[in-house]
Amino acid sequence: MLKIECPWCGPRHETEFRYGGEAHRVRPEKPDSLTDEAWAAFLFMRTNTKGAFAERWCHVNGCRRWFNVLRHTVSHEILAVYAMGEVPPVPGARKEGGQ
């Protein structure tokens, strides 16, 4: 069970959070202008990263805020926690929240 550093509430058990999948997928501004293929890519395709992976978490049993986490998908080490709308930090450049 991961230990996740909520930016608002501090370190908490994973059971307090809901996983929100891959981060930085932006809903297209004008879906109507997209081809079927491009829309299907937005709907269904996700990257399956081995290594540092940016993903969304929501502290559902706490402050109910969404935020981003950079997590290593093999070691589960949490490399960074950052706000919605922020650019993902470069892994290794800033290492925090890890064990």
């Binding site: 809901r18 929100g20 809903r27 969304r56 929501c58 109910r64 805020r65 969404w66 919605m84 709308g85």
Partner: peptide, 13 residues
């Protein structure tokens, strides 16, 4: 409620 919050916080802040 979670669904609404998700869109408000992440897509349309």
């Amino acid at each position: 409620l979670d669904w609404l919050e998700d869109y408000l916080q992440t897509e349309w802040p």
